[in-house]
Structure formats: structure tokens, C-alpha cells
Simulated scan of single mutants.
Amino acid sequence: MLAIIDYGVGNLFSLSRSLEYLEVECKITRSLDELKSADRIILPGVGAFGDARKKLEELSLVEPIQELAASGKPFLGICLGMQLLFDKSEEFGEHLGLGLIPGRIVSMREAFDQANIDLKVPQIGWNKLDVQNAESPLVKSLGENDFVYYVHSYYATDCEEHLVADSEYGLSIPGIVQNKNVYGTQFHPEKSGDVGLNILKAFTEVPV
């Protein structure tokens, strides 16, 4: 069974519908017992990093999530859920992440201003995904011209060692990252058509 963590931040309905379409048994839950019994776990998320971290703390989920990831169970963070996997974020102040993938989350607007890049922030829309590490199981079905759907104003940096795929949007935006059994997608696979469904399917097939 796949567990989707419900902590009050995330697009749970479309994600669960996508998994049901793939005929994957899934459950939306915040129960520690159900999370421990699940074969794999997804941490979704939309909104601000600090607010999401606070909700995880209020539900006493920070340490259990870290322990579940350390156990070797396949773990996937989506959008803000991916950003929470990192060490820290600079969104509206500095906030600690879950420390599951080395790196930090920084402002696209500030990076664009420093580099004189004239692009809209947030990035909203489709962008091509370029594979940098073909060994990752999440990209086994990706082609050379596959697009995915992004909605974000902050992005991951200092994570080159764990970069699986990126997209060009003024600069290199990490789209998929991986640290052993912990995966993250900055884009929304559940909103990315067949390409996103294939990525979700690949995650459900990662050996437990």
C-alpha cells in the first residue's frame, strides 16, 4: 500500500486519482501506524515552506518522516514536498527542512535579478525535462522531448550530486532529485499528463 501524507498542505485529490488510475492501492493518512505499514510514501505540498514545516511539527511528523526515509522505504516529495526534503529554505526567512537531501531552497526572483534574467516568477507552465542521471529508476520511461508542469517561485540549489533531471528556465531548475531511496519532483507529476503518470508509475515500481 502507498501512503500519501495528509498534513493539510497538498493537492491530495488529483494525486490520489492519478494513482487510482494506475491501479495503485493508496491511502491518504496522517496515522503513524499506517505510514509505518505502507510500502512507500509520498509527501505532497503546495504553499509556503515555513507554514508546511510548522504543520509537520504540529502533527509530530518531522522525526517519524526522517525515520521512515532512513529505513530505506521508497519516499517521494512532490513540489513543496520535494523542497521540504532539503536542509533548509530561504523562503520568507530561514527554515529547517527535513535534511533528507543535501542542498537549500532559494528564491527564483532573487536569482533572476542577480543574473539579469527577464522571466516571470512564479514559473507556471510546461517545461522540457532533461535527464542528467539515467540510472535513476524514476526516469526509465522518459524520452528526449518530454514536458512536465511546474508551479513554483523557489527552487533547489547546491544539490548537483543528487540531480536526476532538470529544466531550463533562465537557469537550471532541478526537476527530479534523488538521494538513495528518497526522491523529489519539483513539478507536479499528477498534472503532467502521460509523462507524469509514467514517473508516478516508476516510483510505485521501485523495489521495496
Rank of each mutant, 00 (worst) to 15 (best):
S37H: 03
I41M: 10
I41N: 03
I41L: 14
L43D: 03
L43V: 08
G47Y: 06
G50N: 12
A52N: 05
A52W: 02
R53H: 00
K54T: 00
K54F: 05
K55R: 14
L56P: 12
E57I: 01
E58Y: 01
E58T: 05
L59N: 12
L59C: 04
S60Y: 12
L61Q: 03
E63K: 13
P64T: 13
P64E: 02
E67D: 09
E67Q: 12
L68R: 01
L68G: 08
A70C: 05
G72R: 05
G72I: 03
G72L: 11
G72T: 06
G72N: 10
K73E: 00
L76N: 02
G77C: 09
I78Y: 10
C79D: 05
L80H: 03
G81D: 01
M82D: 01
M82V: 09
Q83I: 03
L84D: 11
L84I: 08
L85K: 04
L85W: 12
D87H: 07
E90D: 09
E91I: 10
G93P: 13
E94H: 15
H95F: 00
L96D: 13
G97L: 13
G97F: 05
L98E: 00
G99C: 11
I101G: 06
P102G: 14
G103S: 04
G103C: 14
R104M: 09
R104E: 15
I105E: 08
V106L: 02
S107M: 07
R109P: 02
E110N: 08
E110R: 09
A111D: 05
D113L: 15
D113R: 14
D113I: 12
Q114A: 15
D118W: 12
D118R: 15
L119A: 01
K120T: 15
V121I: 09
